[in-house]
Computed example of a mutant assay.
Amino acid sequence: MTDRNAQAGGPEPLASTVIKKKTGVAHLFAAAQYSAQGFRRLVQESAFRHELLGFVGGLVVFALVGANLFEFLGFIVLMMLMFSVEALNTAIEELVDRISPEISTVGRNAKDLGSFAVFCLIIANGAFAFYVIVSRVLLG
């Protein structure tokens, strides 16, 4: 500590360790590593594992009913969007639990809103899959 900080009882100055941001290809690899860590964390959530099963099951059903390329792409994009929102919902839940471990209205509202966002995408995915399957089975 500097003499002035020691006398005033203030905090020690930060060490001279400055985190240097990666650039170029190193940044790309670092970002991929962070994404993989996020995926590994998300797989620990049972809701995400159920969504993954729904994704694989949906792809199988789409193949069985003869869905076209755009229907497959629509389903994949909607599922990727749902995975993204599930990841954000999990992040919100973790932050709320860390910042406000006691039960609070604000924390509950934040978690409920994240859950509602996931629910909306589950409905959107289900409606799209239902449309594709019904149109392919009934209209051939």
Rank of each mutant, 00 (worst) to 15 (best):
Pro101Arg: 04
Val85Lys: 11
Gln44Thr: 09
Phe62Ser: 00
Glu93Met: 11
Met80Phe: 14
Arg98Glu: 00
Gln33Ser: 14
Leu52Trp: 08
Asn89Lys: 15
Gln44Asn: 07
Val18Glu: 12
Ile99Lys: 12
Ala30Phe: 05
Phe55Gly: 06
Phe70Ile: 12
Phe128Ile: 02
Ala36Gln: 12
Leu88Lys: 10
Val77Ile: 15
Gly57Ile: 07
Glu12Ser: 10
Gly66Cys: 09
Phe119Trp: 10
Phe116Gly: 05
Leu81Met: 12
Val56Lys: 03
Gly126Asp: 03
Val132Arg: 00
Ala67His: 03
Ile19Phe: 09
Thr23Tyr: 07
Ile99Thr: 13
Ile103Tyr: 01
Gln37Leu: 14
Phe29Glu: 15
Val85Thr: 14
Asn125Ser: 13
Ile122Cys: 06
Gly38Thr: 11
Ser100Asn: 01
Cys120Val: 11
Ser35Leu: 15
Glu86Thr: 15
Ile99Cys: 03
Glu86Lys: 06
Lys111Asn: 07
Ala124Asp: 12
Glu71Asp: 05
Cys120Thr: 08
Leu52Lys: 09
Gly38Tyr: 04
Glu86Leu: 05
Ala67Arg: 02
Gly66Thr: 06
Ile103Lys: 02
Ala63Gln: 13
Leu64Phe: 05
Gly74Tyr: 05
Ile92Glu: 01
Gly10Trp: 05
Met79Cys: 03
Ala15Pro: 02
Met79Ala: 07
Gln33Trp: 00
Asn68Gln: 11
Ala31Glu: 15
Pro11Asp: 14
Thr105Phe: 13
Gly24Gln: 06
Lys22Met: 11
Leu42Tyr: 02
Ile122Leu: 09
Gly126Leu: 10
His27Asn: 04
Gln33Val: 08
Phe39His: 10
Ala26Arg: 14
Ala124Lys: 06
Gly57Phe: 06
Ile19Met: 09
Val18Ser: 11
Ser115Val: 01
Leu53Gly: 04
Ser35His: 12
Leu95Gln: 05
Gly74Cys: 09
Phe83Gln: 03
Leu88Arg: 10
Tyr34Met: 15
Ile99Ala: 12
Glu94Ser: 13
Ala63Gly: 12
Ala32Tyr: 04
Ser16Phe: 10
Ala124Gln: 09
Glu93Gln: 14
Val56His: 02
Ser104Arg: 01
Val132Asp: 01
Phe70Pro: 00
Pro101Ile: 00
Ile92His: 01
Phe55Tyr: 11
Ala36Phe: 15
Ala91His: 00
Thr17Lys: 10
Glu51Tyr: 03
Leu69Glu: 12
Thr23Gly: 09
Phe119Asp: 02
Val18Thr: 14
Lys21Ile: 02
Val61Asn: 08
Ile19Arg: 09
Thr90Arg: 01
Arg49Ile: 09
Glu71Gly: 06
Gly114Met: 13
Gly126Tyr: 13
Glu12Asn: 09
Phe39Ser: 06
Gly54Asp: 10
Ser84Asp: 07
Gly66Gln: 06
Ala67Gln: 01
Val60Tyr: 08
Pro101His: 04
Gln37His: 08
Gly54Asn: 10
Phe130Trp: 11
Thr23Phe: 07
Asp97Tyr: 00
Arg41Pro: 03
Phe128Gly: 07
Gly126Trp: 11
Glu93Asn: 13
